[in-house]
Each structure stands twice: as structure tokens, then as C-alpha cells.
Nucleic acid binder design. Structure first.
Lengths: 155, 155
DNA sequence: ACATATTATTTGCCTGAGCAATCATTGCTT
DNA sequence: AAGCAATGATTGCTCAGGCAAATAATATGT
């Protein structure tokens, strides 16, 4: 049994984990997307394409579960990507509820351009820290995620 | 000069820091707000009140800078809090551009109820980790924030 | 003093995400 | 086989947040 981390004395908005999580995420998100040229994909669209390309998911439902994104909103993101020729929809023949998503050539070239930029952004941000620190940071985030959403690991 | 952390081989959406940051923040946000009863403040409204109560900020502009929240949206949050009697606006007499925000008794009682719940949520989430791990996690978040927004430290 | 730049606040507009409802399809139960 | 629950995809609705413009007041430079 460990002691409580926060007490009335040491709990301050500025140094609280919630404030920092939100702030860092937002700065990263805007930092990455802001460096892309006008007319490029949005960060969220990139995430969807990257998941699709990784081969771990192939439908809208899987994507929304995996990313933790609303299914309705996912439909619209896919609409946009389809309209831009980044992917195609194909009704599954065995289970006709399912629409399989197939990344198109256009989508692959977009990924080839954008993914290295995302990696560079993170590598730049992480430069100066040693790998053990970063590993610990990511392990902590993973552990917190798992505790907040026990299903997350089983997927 | 350190080696790049991410390479084409090890960079996967699922284990990337961006995915984890977003997911953990969202789960925390919804976990906290979801545990409050119907009709309570929103999490964002609580954050604003908590900052105000801490005494480190006293105007809308300071709040939006501090929290990293849009100034226009901040006006509306303050509108809501004012409408619910949680705070009052008072035009500054020396610099008439400024509207000083004063937390009301109603606001203090709301904070007295909600703030311990937020602390409990975090303490619960952090239980099982030792303080050194949590410290390292928060130090890392702080360092990343500072690197992403160098002005953040000076405030 | 006067013109210009900056800051604080507010408003309108637009986009994107969450929620609930709907429809089609499949799986399960009896 | 029929009924019912569960799943996948989609749509309309609503709301919150980001952006840009407008307004008012103050600071700065010449």
C-alpha cells in the first residue's frame, strides 16, 4: 500500500499530470500538423492512414476502437480520405455488414511523405534524453492506459 | 548527440508517444468528469475555477495563456461560470481593458467538493507506482512541455 | 501631441468530435 | 424457423474549441 501521491498541500494545477498531459499532447499535435504544407492531410487523417497501412486494422469499427475515436466521426474521416483518393471502400462478401478499407497508391505516397516528418518531430523532441528515460516514460503511459482501459491490452 | 529514438522499424502507431498521450488524457478527462453527478461543473470549468482559486491568475487572458486555451472559448466558459454564480467579473479601474475575475462563495463550495475527487482519481491511478516513478514521469512531461513551448517556464 | 502598435475582451463563423437513433446484417437461443 | 440480441456503418443533432475580426483601452515611438 503506497501513500497518496497528491495531497492538499502539493496538488497544484500547474504541476498536475492532467494539465501537463493535455498541454504536451496539444503542443505536439499542433507542432506536427503546423509544419505540414497547406492542403496536406490533417494529423487525424494521417493517423487513420498509418493504422490502415500498418495492417493491424482494416475496418472503420476496428479503427475507432483502436484509436479511441467516435465511430460516427470515423465515418466522416474515411469519407474525406476516400474523396481525396487515399483509400477505397469495399463491402465484405462474407459479412455484408463490414466495409473493408483499402489504402490506395495515393494514400501510400502521402504516408511516405508525412510519416518521416512525424518520426523526425518526435526524435527531435526526444533528443537529449537517453533511451532509458524515454522507455520509462512510454512504459508509464502504457501502464496508465492499461489501468484506465483494461480492454486496451487485449486487442 | 544521441541516436534517434524512433526508426522506420520500431515506429508503430500503437506504441508511439502521441497515441498514448492522447489516449491517456482522454481517458483521464472522461474518467474524472464521468464520476461527477449530473449538473456538476464540466472538467474544463473546474480547471478554470481551480486556477482562479490558486491565486496565480486573475483575468481571462492569463487563464487562456496559462491553460493554453483559446481566448474566445475562455470568454464563454467564464460566461457560464458567471451565470451559475461561481464567479463575478469586475472591470479594472487602473487598466480599463482588463476584467478581474473574482471567485464567489458558490465557486468555493463547488471546488471544495470537486477538487478532492480529482485528487482521489489521480491517487487511485498512481497507486501501485512508487513516488520516484511518478516524479520521473511528471519531470519528463514538464521537460517536454518546456521544449515545445519555451515561454511556458517564464510565466 | 499624434500615429501606430500592442493588449484584453468579446463576437461570429466553421470545423470536428461525441451521442443517440437508424438500418442492415449476422449470431444466438429456444 | 422465429425472435431477439449484438455488430458495423451511417446520419442528424449539439456543443466546444480554434480562428479571425471587431472594439476598447493602453503603450510606444517620432
Amino acid at each position: 500500500m503506497t501513500l497518496p501521491y497528491y495531497t492538499t498541500d502539493n496538488f497544484r494545477p500547474r504541476t498536475s499530470a492532467g494539465y501537463l498531459l493535455k498541454r504536451v499532447y496539444r503542443l505536439v499535435h499542433m507542432g506536427i500538423e503546423g509544419s505540414w504544407e497547406e492542403g496536406a492531410l490533417s494529423f487525424t487523417q494521417w493517423v487513420v492512414l498509418a493504422y490502415l497501412c500498418s495492417g493491424t486494422v482494416s475496418t472503420a469499427a476496428e479503427l475507432s476502437r483502436e484509436i479511441g475515436h467516435d465511430a460516427g466521426a470515423m465515418t466522416r474521416i474515411i469519407d474525406q480520405l476516400e474523396a481525396r483518393g487515399m483509400l477505397t471502400r469495399e463491402r465484405d462478401t462474407e459479412d455484408r455488414r463490414i466495409v473493408k478499407l483499402l489504402i490506395a497508391a495515393e494514400g501510400r505516397t502521402a504516408l511516405d511523405t508525412l510519416t518521416p516528418r512525424v518520426m523526425d518531430f518526435w526524435n527531435d523532441l526526444f533528443s537529449g534524453f537517453d533511451a532509458a528515460e524515454i522507455d520509462a516514460f512510454i512504459r508509464m503511459l502504457t501502464a496508465l492506459q492499461l489501468r484506465l482501459d483494461p480492454d486496451a491490452g487485449g486487442r
